[in-house]
Amino acid sequence: MTAGNNFSTTVESRVLPSFSRRRKWIQRIGFTGLTLATLVTVTPILLIVIHIFSNGLPAISWEFLFEFPRDGMRSGGIFPAIVGTFWLTLGTAAFSVPLGIGAAIYLSEYATENRWTRAIRIAIINLAGIPSIVYGLFGLGLFVIFLRMGTSILAGSLTLAIMTLPVIISTTEEALRAVPNSFRVVSISLGGTRWQTIRRVVLPQALPGILTGVVLGLERAAGETAPILFTVAAFYLARLPSSIFDATMALPYHLFVISTQVPGMPIQIQYGTAVVLLTFVLLMNITATVIRSWARARRQW
């Protein structure tokens, strides 16, 4: 547009500069608007986190973290819920991580683009979209009732694992695909089988990406309530679960219970529980972010 300035005798020469100045203004106002809208979107996130921490941190104590609830949960700690969420997350990982990574390897390294592969992709997209409460129903119907697992850590973990699967599959596949194809070609040309190539070159290079995906998937599982409502979660248990066939308390369900189901619940206990859950989730989130940037920094390609 600067070229227009040179034709000083034509009409445009007087019009163009002001026109372009106006466009600059529009752009400036527009960008400011975008910035403000984005701030509207993200400030509540910060406010929520700050609000929960400032109200809940005073409630945190050794006793709160490591003791059982007392007085109908109105005092004491939330130890069984913490332990339960820990076991559930671990159980979810045990099923969803190998299965999800295997599926991602299949999609990225083995599958050719045909009708079946397309069907798998559609199935994954659908799994990702199924409402969490429907997973709860499914877990109830299949694991709890049909397979007679009862409300148990096993049933809950399996339900959460299937729900987590799409997250793990898609992030892992993305990480695998990011590994340059030339590494595969070189490995094959040196007499590697497909599996050797995957194991020795592709997987190690994709590992940080895979870990990020796994952590983000498990983060979601750890915070979910609806899928565990009918498959594992217990309102109150006087002792810790002793096997995977026991029901357990869990942090998100506990938060739900004490904030809606128990009248006269001291507010600090509610916020304290929220802080613990939030810390759990944020830690996983930070872990994922750290792994990602660490891997990006030391990547050799």
């Binding site: 986190v49 938060l255 939030l278």
Partner: peptide
């Protein structure tokens, strides 16, 4: 900054938001 922040929002458990909803 923004991308991880949005990711945090995506990871906030829905009970937690319900809890904030009830109380605030």
């Amino acid at each position: 900054i923004l991308k991880p922040l949005v990711e945090v929002l995506g990871g906030l458990p829905s009970v937690m938001l319900g809890f904030i909803g009830i109380l605030v």
